[in-house]
Amino acid sequence: MFAEFLQFLLSGITIGAIYALAGLGFSIIYNSSHVINFAQGEFIMVGAMSTVALVGTGVPLPVAILIAIVATMLVGLALEKFAIEPARNADVVTLIIITIGASIFLRGVAQVLWGKDFHSLRAFTGDTPINIMGATIVPQSLWVLGVTMVVIIALGWFFSRTLAGKAMLATSYNRLAAQLCGIAVKRVLMLSFGLSAMLGAIGGIVVTPITFTSYEAGIMLGLKGFTAAVLGGLGNGAGAVVGGLIVGVAEAMGAGYISSAYKDAIAFVIILFVLFFMPSGLFGKRATDRV
C-alpha cells in the first residue's frame, strides 16, 4: 500500500521536475516581456532532438549535449531577434500569437530535418532500476531531479548575485525605471529568451531517455509547463517549480488512485481552478491596475 503510494509519488516528482523547468522558462520570458512564449515546448524538443541527431552521427554524449544546448539557445535568440524584436511595439497578444507561429515553424523545421519518427537517447548511467522501499525508479530519474535542482540553484544565484540577473529582475519590476537607470532593456529581452531556451534544452535532454522525443514532443510538455507556471503564479520562479511538482504528482496520483483516463485532464482542471479562484496563482502578487 505504502509502496504503491511511494511509486506514484516518485513518478510524479520525476515528471514534475520537467514541468518545473518548462514552467521556469515561461516565467523568465514573462518577467522580461509579459509575453507567454508558447514556443517554450519547442525549445525542449529542439534540445532533445539535436542531441539525438548528434549522438547518431557519432559525437560523444557530453559534447553532443553541450552543442545541443548552445544550438537551442541560438534558436531562442534568433526567435527574439527576428520575430519578437521587430514587433516590439505591438500588443502583448500579438507577440503571443507570434510565439505560437514560431512554435509551428520550429515543429515544421524539425519534421523536415529529423523526420517524423520517435527517437530515444541511451540512459546516462544504465537502466538497472533502483528499489526504494518497494517502489522503483530508473537511474535517469535521479539525473532529472539532480539536474533540475542544480539548474534551479544556479538560477537563484544568477538572479540574486549577478549584475545581469539583477538587471533582469529590475526590468521585470518596472521596465521604464530600469531603462532610466541605464539597463539595456533590449539586451535583457535577448538574455531572457536565451536563458529560457537553455532551460528547455536541458530539460528536454535529461528526460529523453525516459520519455523519448519526436518533432511534436514539445506540445504537451509546453502545455504542462504553462500549467505549472500559471499555478505557481506567472513570473514567479519558485512558484513555477512548486507548480510543476504539484502538477506532476497530481497527475500520477490521479492516474493511480482515480482513473488513468483522467490523467491529462487533471492538469487542465487545475489550470481552470487557478484561473477561476486565484488568477494570480499560489505565489503570484495580486495584480493591481493603477489609474
Binding site: 511509486q7 528526460v207 525516459i210 496520483m253 492516474a255 493511480g256 488513468s260 490523467k263
Partner: peptide, 20 residues
C-alpha cells in the same frame, strides 16, 4: 483495464495498479 494518453511520458502509475 487501464489507459494512457498517446503522449504520456510515464505510465508507472497505471502499471502499478495492474501489477497489484
Amino acid at each position: 483495464d487501464e489507459t494512457y494518453s498517446p503522449k504520456d511520458p510515464d505510465v508507472t502509475a497505471q502499471l502499478t495498479k495492474i501489477k497489484n
